[in-house]
Design a protein around this nucleic acid. Structure first.
Length: 564
RNA sequence: CGGGGCGUGGCUCAGCCCGGUUAGAGCGCUUGGUUCGGGACCAAGAGGUCGUGGGUUCGAAUCCCACCGCCCCGACCA
């Protein structure tokens, strides 16, 4: 491709509204342009990268026997109502105004419908189906360039099996395929246990790329390899437990005490036996959640424990429900609430909590004597340095960007959409499903996050838009031009993808800067100086290493460099 | 949704607080010339409803109100 005729608008200056390096560089290098918040146009250079990533995905999916589909993004809303996901997605689901249609944020419903209508027998199973398709999600706050957009490409696949054994196999195949996809895309990544969230199902794992700007937080054990999203991560923290004596409950006056720290200071005790009360609303019922001291409630864990989404109760509602203000709520004598507590508080006694009366707390609470706890669950958010649940080594906490998620769905969708099959015995059973997603843009953004410097992108050969960036230093010099033209056709004939900077009247420095910004793995530089000696110069973008050698060796040299 | 910031040629920004010539700079763009190994130089040009609407005023990019758009933080700690 000749740069003189290629549509490639590069920018010298950083776009004002891009915070992350990948975002800045994708705009500067002419890969993308913003159209609206969370919506991007892919320019020719960017689209080349996208297609390469998609091709890697296709190859690895096909290799596990998956079959590619292309499904509609416009879906009848009725199908989404059948699975209850119109409500589950809420405002995130785009609705079409003048038809009863929605823009699909994912495709469980449609693939399951196809399976329902066409798979009748165990003989038709297993199946793995996938597509690479635009998804639409009305994100409340798009951010970080293409990493969280309102429209994005997702590779989504779905497995259909006769039972859970088959599901485990399909899930395992995906796990391996995903590892290959991310490795081939040149990413450093790790896999964590994850929450299934609104998708439902029996288990899931996420593929993560470590990044300060990541929206997810993960706990990692460098000793045994334990890795989990904070939404599910646990640690070995000793329970609060029982003290020898169990005094009768006693109301204590605690004027103007609002926080756990103030209370601990006021009573001159540690925070551990202070049972913090949090009030949540799930559907229309009120839930009191008890945590030890300053332990942080993890809402994802709460949702998992309750089996439904809970939201923090607003202060106004709170007073109406309890008669007390924030800071004074407690479990003793509380009516019309279900009460759950964090595992650390199981069977504990000698606790202090709110009295449901402003400026008062109750001391010497024994959970086995004074309160009816409806259940103990792991609800707390773990913190860095706590002990690994497997081996006891200190846990590290890092931020990550989720680049893929695999789910064992089970029968949630097949049951609600009646996707059944007849087994060997002629019994009708729901198909057992898995669902597996990859954010295609995120692979590109993360690749740039992991492969760039101040001057620009440093592509791996695997997804680089071109293999070679050929630059002729001076287009006014006939010999230089002739040599560059020769090299251009020679490399193209050898099957290499070459971006040839043949622009007239562009200074050498300008060309070099553009080459570094665009980031092709190898730069071939044709200049007067070396040409006179019959030499050619080559620069490896990743290392900055330069090589000068006789022209005749160029092709062999390039082939060696581009092999991996 | 809550909080903060921003909106001025294609891009990055100054001017606004304290209203008053013809609204500026750098980059980019056009034309001519000189250059040609790390974002060259000279000269001449083109290009702006100052986000939109309303208000105050003799006069608004500048002050006030509303709306729109974009970015960032937050949306457990009662």
């Amino acid at each position: 491709m000749r740069l003189s005729t290629y549509f490639l608008p590069t920018l010298k200056e950083n776009p004002a509204d891009a915070a992350m390096a990948s975002h800045r560089l994708m705009v500067r290098a002419g890969l993308i342009r913003p159209l609206a918040a969370g919506i991007y146009s892919w320019l020719p250079m960017g689209w080349r990268v996208m297609k390469k990533v998609m091709e890697i995905i296709r190859e690895e999916m096909d290799a596990i026997g998956a079959q590619e589909f292309q499904l509609p993004a416009l879906n009848p809303i009725e199908i989404w109502e059948e699975t209850g996901r119109v409500e589950a997605f809420g405002d995130t689901l785009f609705h079409v105004k003048n038809r009863p249609l929605v823009l699909a944020p994912t495709h469980e419903e449609i693939f399951t419908t196809i399976a329902r209508d066409n798979i009748k027998s165990y003989r038709d199973l297993p199946q793995i189906w996938y597509q690479i398709q635009t998804k639409f999600r009305n994100e409340p706050r798009p951010r970080s360039g293409v990493i969280r957009g309102r429209q994005f490409f997702m590779k989504d696949s779905y497995s259909f099996d006769t039972g859970f054994e088959g599901l485990d196999k399909s899930y395992g195949l995906h796990r391996e395929a995903y590892k290959n996809i991310y490795s081939r895309s040149g990413l450093n990544f790790f896999i964590v246990g994850a929450s299934s969230g609104a998708m439902g199902g029996t288990g899931s794992q996420e593929f993560m790329v470590e990044s300060q700007d990541g929206e997810d937080t993960c706990a990692l054990c460098d000793e045994c390899g334990y890795a989990a999203n904070l939404e599910v991560a646990s640690s070995r923290l000793k329970p609060v437990g029982r003290l020898g004596i169990s005094n009768p409950v006693e109301e204590i006056h605690t004027p103007n005490i609002k926080t756990i720290d103030q209370l601990a200071e006021f009573l001159k005790i540690s925070t551990e036996r202070l049972a913090k009360s949090l009030v949540y609303k799930a559907d229309n019922s009120a839930v009191l959640v008890l945590m030890s001291g300053n332990d942080q409630l993890n809402e994802a864990k709460l949702t998992a424990a309750l089996g439904k989404t809970a939201t923090a109760m607003q202060p106004a509602d709170l007073a109406a429900f309890t008669g007390a203000n924030a800071g004074s709520i407690g479990p003793v004598g509380l009516k019309n609430f279900s009460i759950i507590a964090d595992k650390r508080l199981e069977d504990a006694n000698e606790l202090i909590s709110g009295a449901n009366k402003d400026d008062f707390h109750i001391a010497h609470i024994d959970f086995n004597r004074d309160v009816k706890i409806d259940g103990y669950y792991d609800l707390r958010t773990i913190e860095a340095g706590e002990s690994c649940p497997n081996c006891g080594h200190g846990l590290r906490i890092v931020n990550g960007i989720e680049i893929g998620h695999i789910f064992k769905l089970g029968t949630k969708y097949s049951v609600s959409l009646r996707a059944n099959f007849l087994d060997e015995a002629g019994a009708e059973k729901p198909i057992v499903m898995g669902s597996y997603g990859i954010g295609v843009e995120r692979i590109i953004a993360c690749h740039i996050e992991q492969n760039h410097d101040d001057n620009g992108i440093k592509w791996d050969k695997s997804i680089a838009p071109f293999d070679v960036h050929l630059a002729s230093v001076n287009m006014d010099n006939k010999d230089v031009v002739a040599a560059a033209e020769n090299i251009y056709s020679e490399l193209e004939e050898a099957g290499m993808e070459v971006l040839y900077d043949d622009r007239q009247g562009v200074s050498p420095g300008f060309k070099f800067k553009d080459a570094d910004l665009l980031g092709m793995p190898v730069q071939v530089i044709v200049g007067e100086r070396n040409l006179k000696q019959g030499n050619i110069e080559l620069k490896i973008r990743k290392t900055g290493e330069r090589k000068i050698f006789p022209m005749g060796q160029l092709l062999t040299e390039l082939k060696t460099l581009l092999k991996n």
